[in-house]
Every structure is written in structure tokens, then in C-alpha cells.
Design a protein around this nucleic acid. Sequence first.
DNA 1: GTCGATGCAAAGGCTTTGCACAGCC
DNA 2: GGCTGTGCAAAGCCTTTGCATCGAC
Lengths: 152, 152
Amino acid sequence: MGDGLRSSLHHRGQRLTPQRQRVLDLFERIGEGTHLSAEQVHQRLLRDQSRVSLATVYRTLRLLSSMGLLQELELPEGGRRFELASDAHRDHHHLVCIRCGCTEEFENPAVLEAGQAAAEGRGFRLLECVLNVRALCPRCAADEALELESPG
Amino acid sequence: MGDGLRSSLHHRGQRLTPQRQRVLDLFERIGEGTHLSAEQVHQRLLRDQSRVSLATVYRTLRLLSSMGLLQELELPEGGRRFELASDAHRDHHHLVCIRCGCTEEFENPAVLEAGQAAAEGRGFRLLECVLNVRALCPRCAADEALELESPG
DNA sequence: GTCGATGCAAAGGCTTTGCACAGCC
DNA sequence: GGCTGTGCAAAGCCTTTGCATCGAC
């Protein structure tokens, strides 16, 4: 545990520090489906008695993303968020409620195929294929229907 | 021209101002495939002798997006950008070069179907379905290959 | 004439950066 | 021991907001 990270870093002439280890540990502990902002990562580490400065959290999130260990979500609402990017979990997509912010994940090979077709047809080399479905979750859809009946 | 916008605004108790007209005009003039940031909108309007403050540009972009006349892109790199959201142009997707930022658009009904299936399966009400494909364009892929051969 | 919209400048949030010191290799 | 990484605070960027004035209806 941690040696994979260590050697990946060494290949790049970089070092394994306790801070980097703690950030990656956190994401591994909370599992694949959870999306955290830099601020949330910072808060959780403080709660765990792991003192890491916010600046280092930002630097580490960028580093781990560039190494492919984390993945940045492309959801404009609510700022940048990151999640673990495990192989088993790659090419999954997000269903986001625009009202309460809750997210569900799903997979569908047709999406990757569509991205590949588009990239190949234009001579692009595909790197990543991200589908975001914005929607209302069942609860928020019900709430909204109520508000339309009796506004105010 | 402009009366559709006027009556849409009046329905909401809002007014058609020259500034709002100018922003929408700009997007209609440049066509569907072009994505502009708030700053770029501001610059173009200045160039056209249409004096609109940057604050108003921001307010207007948000307004027109909430009315469904513009659509915000979800590309983290390079800040928020907007494009015209015509019916004929809905449900198109973006192929983005992460190196030079150039974008291509494409359509593929399989993407919308995937989004609909995910939403329906979980009881969500689908609003929008956005696929972003990150890739290297032919030129940047070639440049990168060269750099790997002879770094520095 | 009223009430919403604009322009300006200041404030705000989030993120990055400069620098001295700490600590990994 | 050298050189990368950290922490802190300051700066930076993009966006929003308060307020007086303007102008659409």
C-alpha cells in the first residue's frame, strides 16, 4: 500500500510525502462514488487529525489528477470536485440533480462508442469521455410539482 | 426579430433593453458553433461600438441561459463559455482538444438514449444531457509525438 | 411615474503563487 | 546535503453585488 504511488512519483522525479499519502488514502477510504471539493478534502483531513494545508490540498489534487489517480468532475455548479479514478470505475457517467446536487453514477458502453466514433472521424486521439446528465431527482421533481400548484 | 425575446421577458415581468438585445444579437450573428466567455462577449461588443458593461454581460448571460436561449458549456479548462441554444442545435456534443482548446461538435442519438435510460431507471426527470470528449487534435497529437522523441 | 436595468467600483469566492523552512531521498 | 514539498499569507482571476442613476413600459 502506497508503494505504487511512491514509484509512480519517483518516475517523475517527485517524492512521496505524508500529505500526498493522506489525500490519496482519504479517497480510497471513502470509495469510488464520492465527490469531494478541495475544501471538503481539507476539512476531512483536519477532522482525522491529519494536518494538511489547503494550498497543499490544491497542489496534491492537481498532481494526483495529472497522474490519473483522481478524476475531476465537470460539473459547473458547486465548484470543482474530485473522485477516485480506479480502472474498474472508469468510463462511468453522472446523473446529477440540479436542485439538491445529489448524484448517481451509471455506465453505458454506447457513450464511449459515441466518443470514439467522433474522435476517430476527425483524427483526434481520444483521452476521456464524460457524460453529464442533468435532471431532477424523484424528490425534487415532486417538490417542484407542489410549488407549481401552490406558489409562495 | 427581437419580439420573441421581448415577450418572453415580459412574461417574466422583465424588460427588453438594448444591452440584452445586443448580447443575443451577437450570438445569433456568430452562429451556433461558437463558444464565447463573458470577457469575449464584452470585447466583441466593444469592437462593434456597442457599449455594454462587463457586469451587465454577466447578468445577461445568466438571464439568457435561464431562459433557455443560451447554453453554458461544461468545460472546466478556460472558464465558463456560452453558446446559442437553438432547437436544431440541441443535443450536440463537444470534442475538445485539451492542448490547444479547439473544439469540434458532433451529434449522436445514442448519447441522449443513454442519458434517458439512466434517468428513467432511477426515477429522475431528464433536463439535459452533455457529453464532453477530451482528446488531442491531429496537430497537437503530432506535436506531442515530436516532443517525446526530442524533449527540450 | 414606477420599477426594473445599467454602470461603476468594491467585495467575494475559489485557486494559485512567492518565499522561507522542513523533510524526503 | 541537495532539491523537492510544505505552510503561510498575499496575490490573482473570474464573478457577483451595492448603490446611484438611467430608461423601458
